[in-house]
Simulated assay, not measured.
Amino acid sequence: MHRGGVNRVLTGFVGLLLLALGGSVLAVGLGAPPPHPWLHTGPHDVLLSTPERTRWRGADWWWPTVIGALTLLVLFALWWLTALVRRHRLTEVLVDTGDGEGALLDGKALESVLAAEAARQRGVNSTDVLLTGRRTAPAARARLRLEPDVDPWTALTDFTAQSLVHARESAGLTSLPAEVRLGAVKHRAERVT
């Protein structure tokens, strides 16, 4: 499972857990009978009793530890949220036109041209290309699905020497680093009669 799938599953699990916990606290607070292994007995019961709240009041380390742990938890949650929301796809690339000005090239257009040229290579069944990075310094992530009889080294060399070079030169970029993943096409077995 890739990182996006793990993030979605983990986010969904944490969300369902918090929803169930918050819903049951709300239901008990509104007068519903508490579930069997519940910590509190009814709507007038407090979350923390006076002895529970004042137990560590005399310890100098208690409150800084609690505040520090909660701060780390909030910072981790904010980092996770921004990582989920942040766009990973580059939408436009800044192209140097040579006259001191620049032009913006649509990122999806460059992705599709790079993918189409890579798919025309010998032995490449299909491709997926994603542009990442900054618009002044883009990078490519490519996944090539190869036919079973193709040498992976040849396919990688053809991709970097032809498709990637053409994309870099046509966009006027000084460099276009790429992460290339190679995979084999899975064919269904067919009955031969």
Rank of each mutant, 00 (worst) to 15 (best):
M1V: 08
G4L: 10
G5I: 02
V9N: 03
L10D: 00
L18E: 11
A20P: 06
L21C: 13
G22W: 01
V25C: 04
L26C: 07
G29H: 02
T41F: 02
L48N: 01
S49F: 00
E52R: 06
W56A: 08
G58P: 00
G58I: 01
W62M: 01
W62P: 00
G68A: 15
A69S: 15
L73C: 15
F76N: 07
L81P: 04
L81Q: 15
T82N: 12
R87I: 02
L90S: 10
T91V: 12
T91Y: 11
L94C: 06
L94M: 10
D96H: 09
K108E: 15
K108L: 13
V113M: 11
A115I: 03
A115D: 15
A116M: 13
G123K: 10
V129N: 12
L130G: 00
T136L: 06
A137W: 00
L144P: 05
L144Y: 06
D149K: 03
V150E: 13
P152G: 02
L156C: 00
T157E: 12
T157V: 12
D158S: 07
Q162A: 02
H166N: 07
H166E: 09
A167L: 05
A171Q: 05
A171D: 02
G172K: 03
T174M: 06
P177T: 04
G183L: 11
V185I: 09
